[in-house]
Simulated assay, not measured.
Amino acid sequence: MTGEARPKVLVTGATGYVGRAAVRHLRALGCTVHALGRHDPGDGIAWHRTDLLADGDLVGAVADIDAQVCLHLAWSVPPGRFWTHPDNLDWVGASLRLFRAFVAAGGRRVVGVGSCAEYAWDVPLLREEMPLRPDTLYGRAKAALADLLFAFAQQEGVEAAWARLFFLYGPGEPEGKLVSDAASILLRGGRVATTPGEQSRDFLHVDDVGRALALLSCTSMTGPVNIASGQAVRVREVLERIERLTDTEGRVDYGQRSLAAGEPMKLVGDVSRLRDEVGFRPHFSLEAGLRDTVDHWRQRLQDRVS
């Protein structure tokens, strides 16, 4: 869709952690955004109340929107149990119903959102063309959905792209995640129990993730694409930076937790497609992104006591 007028975009998961950032950047690009889901995103965004997991009139709701692009972010399972929860299967079915309704209504481009968990984590550099060997139900569900989407899109003559997200952080991050947990605990005067921290991961600020998805939605690029920074950073370095930004010292207890069995020491995404075909480069450096996250938590804690 490069070079065309900015499309009307149907977004699911618009009120979620990534969805809010994606919607903000779609609007900044000049797209008309319609949110499809259970919750009103507010801010003047057209909202169509629909429960994707229920047997409502999904076909009618999608037809009423009449969008050219579908950015599908919705996917919700219990926190801390998403790797193995059977609800992953429900979301595969709900997603396929959405894709079918969207194409039947004349939609021309689907952008699905997956995960680096679709890859086999036995090599450090993860490229889109690599064979997929996910080890969890979540990763398998995402990989299976992508495979079905590509087959369906080819058959129906529409575009399909699949964004594999790596390790996100930033304001609004759900509880149980490394960066926000460390920032909030240290700002409250607590201690952070963690692994030795020698493993390296590919971190990307959520605002950059949202911008990458918005740009991807407005291109004609098809197939899988890594949404990542392309840089591996040691977890210990991340935590040390958070300590400096929170003006704390000596309250991260390295080695109090063990790495999970089989957890790799290094994971980083190849971002060649994201850079060259989508035209994306991160705005946030790691330092700026961590500062933004710490400032968010500092403000939240101040608001609670005021």
Rank of each mutant, 00 (worst) to 15 (best):
F82N: 12
R38Q: 14
L204S: 09
M1T: 14
R49G: 06
V179P: 00
V235M: 09
G80I: 06
R304T: 12
L165W: 05
L71Y: 03
R49K: 15
L10P: 06
D208Y: 07
I65S: 00
R201W: 07
W162K: 02
R234C: 11
R140S: 14
R244Y: 04
T219G: 02
L290Q: 03
W162I: 01
S76K: 11
D208S: 09
G114A: 09
A183T: 06
L26C: 01
L239D: 01
V271W: 07
G60T: 12
G42A: 13
L267Q: 13
A35Q: 12
R291N: 02
Y17M: 08
P7E: 14
L89H: 11
D292G: 04
G172F: 02
D292E: 09
G210F: 05
A288S: 13
I242G: 02
T195L: 01
V103H: 05
E156K: 11
E243W: 03
T293G: 03
G37Q: 13
L148Y: 10
E4H: 13
P174G: 04
V209P: 11
L213R: 13
E287H: 05
P7W: 00
D40Y: 00
D135M: 11
P86W: 00
K8C: 05
H205G: 02
V33S: 04
A146E: 15
V69P: 07
E128V: 15
F166E: 03
P282C: 06
V62Y: 00
L239M: 06
D295Q: 12
E263H: 06
G157I: 00
S229Y: 04
P79T: 09
C70H: 13
D122Q: 11
L29D: 10
L71D: 06
G42L: 10
P196C: 01
C218Q: 06
Y119C: 08
D64W: 07
C116N: 15
S220D: 15
A5H: 13
R49H: 14
K142P: 15
L58F: 10
A261H: 12
D303W: 00
D253N: 07
W162A: 04
T84M: 11
G250L: 11
E277I: 02
P264Q: 05
L73G: 10
A22M: 08
I65D: 01
R127S: 15
G42Y: 04
K177I: 00
T195P: 03
G30N: 10
A161N: 08
S285L: 05
F99T: 04
D135P: 01
A46L: 09
H72Q: 12
A63M: 03
G176V: 04
L29I: 02
A94D: 08
F166L: 04
T15S: 13
S220M: 01
R201F: 02
V206H: 04
S180C: 03
D40R: 03
L245F: 06
D295I: 09
V252L: 03
H34I: 08
D207K: 14
D40Q: 11
R236F: 04
L259Q: 07
P41T: 12
K8L: 05
R191W: 06
F150A: 12
R304G: 08
N226W: 10
G210Y: 03
L96V: 15
V110Q: 01
S229F: 00
R49M: 08
A163V: 02
M130T: 09
T222R: 04
G255R: 00
M1N: 00
A163L: 07
P131H: 13
G223N: 11
V9Y: 02
L259D: 07
D202T: 01
D207N: 14
